[in-house]
Design a protein around this nucleic acid. Sequence first.
DNA 1: ATATTTTTTTAGGCTAAACTAAATTTATTT
DNA 2: AAATAAATTTAGTTTAGCCTAAAAAAATAT
Lengths: 220, 220
Amino acid sequence: MSLSPTEENYLKAIFKIAEKEKKAVGTNSIAKQMDTAPASVTDMIKKLADKDLINYEKYKGVSLTPAGNKAATNLIRKHRLWEVFLVNKLRFAWHQVHDIAEELEHIMSDELILRLDAFLDYPKFDPHGDPIPNAEGKFTLRTQMSLSDMTLLQSGVVLGVKEHQTEFLKHLTKLNIKLGSEIKILEITDFDLSMRIHIDNKYEEVISKTISQNLLMKRN
Amino acid sequence: MSLSPTEENYLKAIFKIAEKEKKAVGTNSIAKQMDTAPASVTDMIKKLADKDLINYEKYKGVSLTPAGNKAATNLIRKHRLWEVFLVNKLRFAWHQVHDIAEELEHIMSDELILRLDAFLDYPKFDPHGDPIPNAEGKFTLRTQMSLSDMTLLQSGVVLGVKEHQTEFLKHLTKLNIKLGSEIKILEITDFDLSMRIHIDNKYEEVISKTISQNLLMKRN
DNA sequence: ATATTTTTTTAGGCTAAACTAAATTTATTT
DNA sequence: AAATAAATTTAGTTTAGCCTAAAAAAATAT
């Protein structure tokens, strides 16, 4: 059974919400994620439940079935592989690739993804540091923490970003922060928890708590 | 103004029909090309005429306006560039790429095509030997002729194929015929115009008129 | 030149995916 | 526990792109 791009997007939205909140996913949160009216979500929910992609009880929210989970992770796999292609092969910047990958992820050929994966050398993480699930839907796990949870004089390496907004990513680039950058905390201001940091032992910058919270690190 | 994939496909269909038949393009021929009912074509024709992409007079058929022509050639450009990507980079065979490119051609980013073109080294022809229009919609022309129009003992190089059907392309592959192959006509049978040919001075095969008609050659 | 055939358009419907407004159920306050 | 608020569903429309059947126009044949 094949899914429309819209159906796939709903499954992905449900997956992403379920990732954060443990419990059943509500109509309203899906509506917000998809930027549609709650009534539209109810319609689609019924359709996906009929196809056994989600578990649904009226007024009780939804969760993905194994089949739905498979479809969602496969879409995420495709999205992230295409992002790797766009950045590593076509030399796009990391803030430019989300919307394009959002379209590319719906191309249907499985053979295409197989070959793309090989062409890219089987990457395990995308340009934002997010793990790329394998063909079975398994994500590679790593221990990582927000820079905001590290303390004075500690240092670490940037593994990824929590926030994917264009403006945030452009800002990081301006600060010379990228995946793999080494960051050392030189000073923490008690008042607002802003940090003075050393980037790759080369650039000294001050960053707000909002930024340090969204930087995912491996501590040295 | 942005076009839906369906609208783009109609423009492409009109372009392809207009390429062969000089006159105005009729509703029925579009319906056949698009595999839809003529009534659906009439609906869409009106919409495209409203957007000034085609010239349309009731019962008189249609033709592309400059804007429509631009959109159609751009779609063909994208299709053919993606085919080059699939064959040259992902190592697909030439008979596998049409359907996938049919989906990829509708990805909207112009920047993507710009970068893809550069990544592929600005190819002028696709894996079937069809010219790739440049960003302004200009096609590179070459003098070429069907193998069926060449005569005994002449030889030439395969530039492209007229027919794109999977089975035809697979058959050529089995005969060791590909773009760039040198072919010499050893014998022509008067009765059915089949040919005995030498391929790359290495393989000797007999091919029917149907095949020789669909092979486009540069004569030595 | 009229009759027949072919092509094209109109009319009326259908489905997927959205919407708004109203009704209903569940959750939260007082 | 009743009242209010929030979340969810139902009901009724909308739009794009398709369909079939019937009507109208153009092309072809007699």
